[in-house]
């Protein structure tokens, strides 16, 4: 096994699986182009082939040299502390990865589950909106429950969840909660500074983008969030 670890095998396996998937999918657009004899699929297939070679080369490197870098000078120059932070925080275990990817399912669940329920129950209009709000509340509850057990996983999930909610609930309604959530995940626990800073950041952003630059931000599709967003825009503009 040389200096190989399970993580190295998983890493190489993931790259090779990705290559396989991309190669199989390339048959979907393997069409001739009259003026270009290589067609549309030659370029991506060469990249896939090189990716597979590099993934095997990386595996060979791990087998021979473990986690050693190619050159100390390059390693020092490209080191941004991310690897060391991961190592020091013990966030390299299978349990941590499972918990993180479990949390990351939440925003994607919000993007799909409400539609499935509404379609299953043949709901439209306001009733479908209620389903979306209920799903958002339940998923937010799940997020808060698991957040304390995996703060880094929660930090990766929160912005994605925020982005998933933007279309329905709008920037204006949920941004303050997002600001407080990020501060909390960074270790801030004092309520007064959190409220003050959240108000300050929200106010500054509104002033700059809505009042001065007239940037149109999502106001949301669902009531009452839509009404709140419209009210903020009307007041500021």
């Amino acid at each position: 096994m040389g200096q190989l670890r399970v993580g190295h095998l998983v890493e190489a396996g993931l790259w090779l699986l990705l290559c396989l998937f991309l190669y199989i999918y390339s048959f979907d657009f393997d069409k001739d182009i009259e003026i270009y004899k290589f067609g549309a699929s030659a370029w991506p297939r060469v990249i896939i082939l090189l990716m597979a070679i590099a993934a095997i080369g990386q595996l060979f490197h791990h087998w021979k040299k473990g986690d050693e870098s190619s050159s100390q000078i390059i390693s020092a120059a490209t080191d941004d502390g991310a690897e060391e932070a991961a190592h020091e925080s013990h966030h390299e275990s299978l349990k941590w990865y499972a918990s993180t990817f479990g949390l990351l399912v939440i925003p994607f669940a919000y993007m799909r589950v409400p539609d499935w329920i509404a379609s299953f129950l043949s709901l439209e209009g306001t009733s479908a909106h209620v389903i979306r709000i209920v799903c958002a509340v339940i998923l937010a509850g799940v997020f808060v429950y698991y957040m304390r057990r995996n703060m880094v996983g929660a930090m990766l999930t929160l912005p994605l969840f925020f982005a998933a909610l933007l279309e329905d609930m709008g920037f204006y309604s949920i941004a303050p909660f997002f600001i407080i959530g990020v501060m909390y995940l960074f270790g801030e626990r004092r309520a007064k500074p959190m409220a003050l800073v959240a108000g300050l950041i929200y106010g500054l952003l509104m002033l700059l983008f809505v009042k001065i630059l007239f940037v149109g931000l999502p106001i949301g599709n669902i009531r009452p969030f839509y009404d709140i967003g419209s009210w903020v825009v009307t007041v500021l503009q």
Partner: peptide, 18 residues
């Protein structure tokens, strides 16, 4: 403190991407 800078950076990035 960085906990006050982080939400600002994330929201600026959000507005920028949108």
């Amino acid at each position: 403190p960085f906990q006050f800078l982080a939400p600002m950076i994330l929201l600026l990035a959000t507005v920028g991407a949108y």
